[in-house]
């Protein structure tokens, strides 16, 4: 697949359709892959990667890249495509400056899980059926996908691209949502006190590195409230336990109705806080109160929290639910 993408990117660069390409590049380690912009065929040949460690969502980078002159080729996994579409809905990306190529994704590996399985010194990854084959400093290792996939991929919402100019590989389908909300169900079944303790425990590990915000494709404000001294919220350090909880709660509210559940927040969290559960709770609530809704499904959609229909749940219903 990687070679296919590089070939197509080179063609599009050569025929002048695009002037730049956004994809993924290896960092210090093989599992340390970050989005990167390529401008020449040579750069692509040398550094472009697409493998089981390319979990990073490239859509957010297109805000800046699409504001520049010339068209950019963006390789979008289904997750990235939903985020891309949502950003289009919010007028954050200049569509005419992006050539979107949908690419297939069979799920991305979680290096933490691989390490926990006792596999160290990973230098490369490839897929083989239901397994990941890992080359390591100590020889080749195999691990079942179900043991190595990131949580977000185990409960993958869709293999479909809601938006693209061109598709490489076959278009996938939406996947059933049942498993995706299991963890939220569990939280909902807790008593308020148990739930509070759960989150206090999880969030107590927060070091306020702001990685979740910086990576989030919904967190795209010109001037974030947490950086704005006039907002009354701008504390960048974890000043006290209350402060760090409020940071995450405020962030969850800000992205409610806009979050596509791409799971980047949890991927980048150095403390492994399951931040995506806050967002998923909002998604579940929105689905149940206002009817099934998927952020990023199309670029015209008004999300239920900023639109009004007569059949919307009455505030009293929302209030009752909040008390449960």
């Amino acid at each position: 697949m990687r070679n296919k993408l590089v070939e197509r990117a080179k063609e599009l660069l050569a025929d002048g359709t695009v002037t730049r390409v956004i994809g993924w590049k290896r960092g210090e380690f093989s599992y340390d892959v970050t989005p990167a912009v390529f401008e020449t065929a040579e750069e692509l040949e040398k550094d472009f990667v697409y493998d089981g460690f390319c979990g990073a969502n490239v859509s957010k980078y297109l805000i800046r890249e699409s504001a520049k002159e010339g068209k950019i080729l963006a390789f979008l996994k289904p997750c990235d495509a939903f985020s891309f579409n949502q950003l289009l809905a919010e007028h954050r990306i200049r569509r005419e400056n992006v050539y979107a190529v949908g690419i297939p994704c069979e799920g991305m590996a979680d290096i933490g899980k691989i390490r926990s399985a006792g596999i160290d010194g990973v230098t490369g990854i490839r897929e083989e059926g239901e397994e990941f084959v890992l080359s390591t400093l100590y020889g080749e290792e195999r691990i079942a996908k179900k043991d190595a996939l990131a949580e977000r991929c185990l409960v993958c919402k869709s293999k479909r691209h809601p938006v693209y100019d061109e598709l490489i590989g076959e278009e996938g389908e939406d996947l059933p949502d049942d498993a995706r909300f299991e963890a939220v169900d569990k939280l909902e079944k807790m008593t308020a006190e148990e739930r509070f303790q759960f989150w206090r425990g999880e969030l107590s590990r927060c070091i306020r590195c702001n990685a979740c915000r910086n990576v989030c494709p919904a967190c795209t404000c010109e001037n974030c409230v947490f950086d704005n001294p006039d907002s009354g919220l701008s504390q960048k350090a974890a000043a006290d336990p209350f402060e760090e909880s409020m940071y995450h709660i405020i962030r969850a509210f800000h992205v409610a109705g806009r979050c596509t559940d791409c799971g980047e927040c949890s991927r980048v969290c150095p403390e492994n806080i399951p931040l995506h559960l806050l967002n998923r709770k909002f998604i579940k609530d929105i689905d149940e109160l206002y009817g099934a809704y998927r952020a990023g499904e199309n670029a015209e959609n008004k999300n239920p929290l900023v639109s009004f229909r007569e059949e919307d749940a009455e505030p009293s219903v929302v209030h009752e639910r909040g008390r449960a």
Partner: peptide, 15 residues
């Protein structure tokens, strides 16, 4: 204007 993202949330909710 310096802080506005242009996201249209406000226009969407304005009755």
């Amino acid at each position: 204007e310096m802080m506005c993202n242009g996201c249209s949330n406000c226009a969407n909710v304005c009755p």
